[in-house]
Amino acid sequence: MSKRDVVFPAGRHALYEQHHYSPAIRSNGFLFVSGQVGSRADGSPEPELLDQVALAFKNLNGILDAAGSSFADVVDVTVFIVDPHSRFESIWPTVVKNHWGEAPYPNITCVGVTWLAGFNFEIKVIAKLPEA
């Protein structure tokens, strides 16, 4: 196997070292981004739900930007929500309105979970990298 082509955003390197994972990997013209949460610089969760979602997207966009990509290049999305029955309706309009961009939209899978290490929202994506 060849060496992984890891993409690091500005800052947050300690978070990845602490938990032993890469923020994103480039492979065969795609960018595979690890799940991003609304973590502050110290790794703690943003307390307010919608602020946590916004920070998760900010963290995601930092990785996409570091790879020379953007959310417009995203083709696949997986979203994890703790207690989606009570949170989905407050999260989803904000996500679509403020972060998703224009149609055509990427495909998506939403997963309800019981635990995200103190977070309530996580997003992971696969993006097609722009041609060099």
Score class of each variant (00 low, 15 high):
residue 105 Y to S: 08
residue 119 F to K: 04
residue 108 I to E: 06
residue 92 W to E: 13
residue 105 Y to R: 13
residue 92 W to V: 10
residue 80 F to D: 02
residue 78 T to E: 07
residue 124 K to F: 03
residue 122 E to T: 01
residue 103 A to C: 10
residue 98 N to G: 13
residue 84 P to K: 10
residue 122 E to I: 01
residue 86 S to Q: 10
residue 89 E to W: 11
residue 118 G to W: 02
residue 78 T to N: 06
residue 91 I to E: 00
residue 101 G to Q: 01
residue 124 K to N: 09
residue 104 P to G: 07
residue 93 P to S: 11
residue 86 S to H: 10
residue 79 V to A: 07
residue 123 I to Y: 00
residue 115 W to Y: 15
residue 90 S to V: 13
residue 91 I to Q: 00
residue 95 V to P: 02
residue 89 E to M: 15
residue 82 V to A: 08
residue 110 C to R: 14
residue 91 I to D: 00
residue 121 F to Q: 04
residue 111 V to S: 07
residue 119 F to R: 07
residue 80 F to K: 11
residue 111 V to W: 05
residue 76 D to C: 05
residue 82 V to N: 05
residue 122 E to F: 00
residue 119 F to Q: 05
residue 122 E to Y: 03
residue 107 N to K: 13
residue 97 K to F: 11
residue 105 Y to M: 11
residue 104 P to Y: 03
residue 93 P to A: 11
residue 79 V to I: 12
residue 98 N to E: 13
residue 109 T to F: 04
residue 124 K to T: 08
residue 98 N to W: 07
residue 97 K to E: 15
residue 79 V to C: 05
residue 78 T to M: 08
residue 78 T to K: 08
residue 76 D to T: 06
residue 83 D to M: 09
residue 115 W to R: 15
residue 84 P to H: 06
residue 76 D to P: 02
residue 123 I to G: 00
residue 95 V to C: 04
residue 82 V to M: 08
residue 120 N to I: 05
residue 87 R to P: 02
residue 113 V to P: 04
residue 110 C to T: 14
residue 94 T to M: 15
residue 99 H to Y: 02
residue 80 F to M: 11
residue 94 T to I: 10
residue 81 I to G: 05
residue 116 L to F: 02
residue 109 T to W: 03
residue 81 I to A: 06
residue 95 V to H: 01
residue 87 R to H: 08
residue 103 A to G: 08
residue 104 P to C: 07
residue 88 F to G: 12
residue 82 V to T: 06
residue 115 W to D: 15
residue 115 W to L: 15
residue 98 N to K: 12
residue 91 I to T: 01
residue 80 F to T: 01
residue 112 G to P: 02
residue 90 S to F: 08
residue 113 V to R: 04
residue 113 V to L: 06
residue 90 S to H: 11
residue 104 P to S: 06
residue 89 E to F: 15
residue 100 W to F: 13
residue 98 N to R: 11
residue 115 W to T: 14
residue 81 I to Y: 03
residue 91 I to F: 01
residue 86 S to E: 12
residue 114 T to Y: 00
residue 97 K to Q: 12
residue 77 V to S: 00
residue 110 C to D: 09
residue 117 A to P: 06
residue 99 H to D: 00
residue 78 T to Y: 04
residue 115 W to Q: 15
residue 81 I to S: 07
residue 92 W to F: 15
residue 102 E to S: 14
residue 102 E to T: 12
residue 81 I to L: 11
residue 120 N to C: 13
residue 95 V to W: 01
residue 105 Y to D: 07
residue 108 I to F: 14
residue 85 H to C: 08
residue 107 N to S: 15
residue 99 H to R: 01
residue 85 H to R: 14
residue 97 K to D: 14
residue 87 R to C: 06
residue 91 I to R: 00
residue 106 P to S: 02
residue 91 I to H: 00
residue 109 T to Y: 05
residue 84 P to A: 12
